[in-house]
Design a protein around this nucleic acid. Sequence first.
DNA 1: AAGTCCCTGTTGTTGGTACAACTGGTGCTA
DNA 2: TAGCACCAGTTGTACCAACAACAGGGACTT
Lengths: 256, 256
Amino acid sequence: MPIDPHSSRALYRQLADELRSKIYSGELKPGAQLPTERELMEQFDASRNTVRLALGQLANEGLTVSGRGRGHFVRASAPLLFLATRSESPDRRANTANDAWTTDVTAQGRTPAQTIEVSIVRPPQNVASLLELEEGETTALRTRLRTVDGEANSLSMSYFPMSIVATTEIVQPDDIVRGANRVLAEIGHDQVRYLDQITARMPTPDERDALRIGAGIPVHEHVRVGYDADDVPVRVAVTVLPADRHIIQYELANAQ
Amino acid sequence: MPIDPHSSRALYRQLADELRSKIYSGELKPGAQLPTERELMEQFDASRNTVRLALGQLANEGLTVSGRGRGHFVRASAPLLFLATRSESPDRRANTANDAWTTDVTAQGRTPAQTIEVSIVRPPQNVASLLELEEGETTALRTRLRTVDGEANSLSMSYFPMSIVATTEIVQPDDIVRGANRVLAEIGHDQVRYLDQITARMPTPDERDALRIGAGIPVHEHVRVGYDADDVPVRVAVTVLPADRHIIQYELANAQ
DNA sequence: AAGTCCCTGTTGTTGGTACAACTGGTGCTA
DNA sequence: TAGCACCAGTTGTACCAACAACAGGGACTT
């Protein structure tokens, strides 16, 4: 019995440790139900507050989920989906009726869909700096909510300097089947170099809402800056990916 | 007054929303102290438990930190540090007394250090599968805890198939200044291709401990598989990076 | 001037209670 | 058989109380 009331470690932490190790060891398998709060109260001679503190800890670590009237369950390990970065390779874009992402997802046997909104905005500070914009310059913003099999999947915001795209179809709220990148290329701003920065954080309430993100699940924030042949940044794409549904993958050839 | 006791939204959620929006709007700046729990109890006419539920929510989102006897504070935004992936480019490794990471960190004006442990282990399932090992095969494991300016920074575990490295200095618990990759190259297993997979999750208690990770901060798990010219996987490096201290960066040239 | 002690204020931990809201099953009814 | 009503069980929300542990400042001592 690993519960020691004389230990300096808080009781609820010991309880959380106990349950956590049962999850890691496999004694409690994904999908399995944990003991009810009442059972844990009796087993460990603790108050309900204490038991709930421990269970809350596990939930915040992304290990468990719970539902009113149902119980606490070990989170079923996610049906992982790939974001193949590097899928913008040139030969992928031409001639197909779909963009690279749609093709990727379809290839995995899932059903993709997306809604697009377009607006003209002053970009956030970090985007403005990546695009090397002057104070007050505006951008076209194409916001994309992607769904797979009807479930929200990722949220992508692409910023284009208005000074470059003002007269193109990028500012039209339509799906551009051949890809916005191709439009850029047609007006002489083909992207020849990318800079990717990946951060991880807990989602904002808006994101939790839009992407149906459970408690204890972080998000990737994937920022891609595209540069044209003159080294001018022509696009910043910010993609928010719930971490339980996405692995970001890169394939690198060791040049030389 | 956004607090509505008749709302269906739980009181502690409304309170959390209220405080959160003050943080996002900048009314509460990084480092600023939030009202004390007693003050919040009075302002919102709520019990201490309810107030603490709201504050706990913010902490789990990584927005605030608290300390016994001190108070609750808006988390000071992180002094971000870069992990320049792609720093293994060939010309970087030769002739220097330091490895690529040490060079990188020093270039940023910080003081790096690392401790290395070596052992022979049966690798975890996912690593075994990435290395295409048979059941029961063992690997050399070099575990590296890196610190910057005396603070724990990242945890890296590199697995090498014993069938390849058994007779090399990789199994010795010493620092290999020219890099383990170079040793691999010398015995005919130069890595010409990498596969990187990046996931994000909440840290395990061990990791929280070893890397001093605050509540509400996720980690990146960066997995790199190195393949030699015969497409044989010769190394799997798993690196755990606290997300408040690391941005993962890739530079990509659009081949052709 | 420097150090020590203590006191106050703060968060951390743990106990208790009550009711609301929801799930899943049981058994009844049409 | 299908549908409905109900009930027991479970988690969610909210309240109250008490003590522990720690930080920081003020007062006092040396």
